[in-house]
Amino acid sequence: MKNLSITQKKWWLTAHILFSAIWFGVTVTFLILSISVLTTNDSQVIKAYYTSMLQMEQTAGRASLIGTVITGLILSIFTKWGLFKFYWIITKEILTFICLVLGFFLIYYWTLNGIHLSEESIGDHFMANHYQLMIWIIIQVILLAIIFIVSVFKPWGKSIKRQ
């Protein structure tokens, strides 16, 4: 396969960083909105917070996640880094997959469930759902931060020793 030119690599890397930053920003915003839910008893305000989270998940969240994955794959495949040559890249791929599952399935499910439960009442079932959602949002923020750190420091060596 032909490698990207330096200019092409810089453009793809710029897109990758922007998509990643948006994804991280959306996740932090989710955390802020979920904390805000704890500060009110007004069911309409709570529903508005959850509706905002759902809208972000279905737009900027999904677009940034998909953009991050596609640009990351292109950078891995068409540069010297490769998909499985370095432990730090394999670590990023595993953590990205975990975050993908968290975002597309778990966080999305608990957000939808929170909207449904907030229409009934803000009781024990809603709060149990909300705390589960918050835990997974916090985990995703931590994992995304680790991905950024691994990207900057590039720890560990090659996964396969070549002669």
Rank of each mutant, 00 (worst) to 15 (best):
I17D: 00
I74Q: 03
L100I: 13
L112A: 11
S5P: 06
S121I: 10
F104I: 15
L112E: 14
L33R: 13
L95N: 01
K92A: 00
K80S: 07
D124G: 05
L33V: 09
W12I: 07
Q163C: 05
G61E: 04
I160K: 11
M134T: 15
I138G: 12
L33H: 13
I74Y: 02
I32R: 14
E57A: 15
I70R: 04
W136G: 09
S76Q: 02
A128F: 03
V26T: 09
S36F: 10
I137K: 07
W81T: 10
L54K: 14
L106H: 08
P155H: 07
R62P: 03
R162A: 12
I22A: 08
I94Q: 03
F86G: 03
K161N: 15
I94W: 04
F153E: 11
I22K: 01
I6G: 01
Y131D: 06
W23G: 07
K9V: 01
L95Q: 00
L112W: 09
L75P: 03
S118K: 05
T51Y: 06
P155A: 07
W136A: 08
K9W: 03
Q55G: 10
T79D: 00
K10F: 02
K9A: 05
L13E: 03
I122L: 07
T68Y: 06
V69D: 01
W110Y: 15
I89L: 10
F19T: 10
Y49A: 07
R62G: 15
L65D: 04
I89R: 06
V141M: 01
T14L: 07
I107S: 07
I147H: 01
F19A: 10
L144W: 03
A145K: 04
K85A: 02
S121N: 12
E120S: 11
I66K: 05
H130G: 09
D42A: 08
L38W: 09
I74W: 02
F153S: 08
I77A: 10
G157K: 15
I35N: 14
Q44A: 13
S64A: 10
Y131L: 12
G123I: 04
A145F: 11
G67R: 00
I115T: 06
F126S: 04
G25P: 10
S118W: 01
A60K: 03
M1C: 05
C99S: 13
I138R: 09
Q163H: 14
T91Q: 08
K85N: 09
G67D: 02
W156Q: 12
V37D: 05
Q140T: 15
A60M: 09
Y87M: 07
G67V: 00
T91Y: 09
L112D: 14
F97K: 08
S43H: 10
D124T: 14
I98P: 03
E119G: 08
S36Q: 13
P155I: 09
L100N: 09
W110S: 05
I70K: 04
N41P: 00
S76E: 02
I138H: 08
S20L: 04
T96F: 04
Q55E: 13
K154R: 14
I160T: 14
L95E: 00
V152M: 05
S121V: 09
L102H: 13
I142S: 11
Q55C: 06
L133E: 06
I17E: 00
K85Q: 06
K154N: 06
